[in-house]
């Protein structure tokens, strides 16, 4: 699962065309395990400026104020990686970024939303929307931010880890549900 931004950037990768950088928030779960709070994501097709515009596009599509930039950077880096193999996507992204203009990345949210509404039906926007929705919520940072616990097979499932710990509603009669398959350990 490729969801880690290389937080300890030792060298600027050969062939990079741009880079996205940032600082993890103090108290971020990732900051506890990363060797440095500074992170960087190399780009292979897009320039740093283009990457910054796409970062702003992804955050406008899925605005979670408490979710770190590093999660959005993963979306951009993944899009950039797709474009390495796909020339028409490369063209689509560069033209889309050009249409939005240089001020988009730093514009207030209301202006960014208005600009995206205007191009909502374009392949560029739809590509970025699908890419953002399909990538952002699969990141480890999103799992933590939304409280999603993910796979549980390796931990024995949720059978004794909270699958029935809801107490704000009455219990279900046994006749309409069923017994626990084994007693609690």
């Amino acid at each position: 699962m490729d969801t880690h931004v290389p937080v300890d950037r030792r060298e600027f990768l050969k062939g990079s065309t741009g880079v996205l950088t940032g600082v993890l928030a103090a108290g971020s779960p990732l900051a506890l395990i990363a060797p440095s709070r500074v992170w960087a994501a190399d780009l292979r097709v897009l320039t740093s400026a283009e990457g910054a515009t796409l970062m702003a596009v992804t955050r406008t599509i899925a605005p979670h104020d408490g979710l770190e930039d590093a999660a959005y950077a993963i979306v951009v880096q993944s899009t950039d990686a797709d474009a390495v193999k796909d020339e028409s996507l490369r063209k689509l992204l560069k033209e889309g970024v050009a249409t939005l203009g240089p001020s988009f990345a730093t514009a207030p949210e209301s202006e960014r939303v208005a600009a995206l509404r205007k191009i909502e039906q374009t392949p560029f926007f739809q590509t970025m929307r699908v890419k953002t929705l399909g990538t952002l919520y699969g990141t480890e940072m999103a799992y933590r931010y939304f409280g999603y616990e993910g796979e549980a097979f390796s931990k024995g499932g949720y059978l004794f880890r909270g699958f029935n710990d809801l107490r704000w509603l009455p219990e279900v009669p046994l006749a309409d549900s069923g017994p626990m398959p084994v007693p609690a350990p």
Partner: peptide
């Protein structure tokens, strides 16, 4: 298949409690 031929049903999850109530 559960709830057929003497097979017990699956137990109720949090999610089912909401649905059921």
């Amino acid at each position: 298949v559960t709830r057929r031929h003497g097979n017990p049903g699956l137990p109720a999850s949090n999610h089912f409690k909401v649905f059921y109530n």
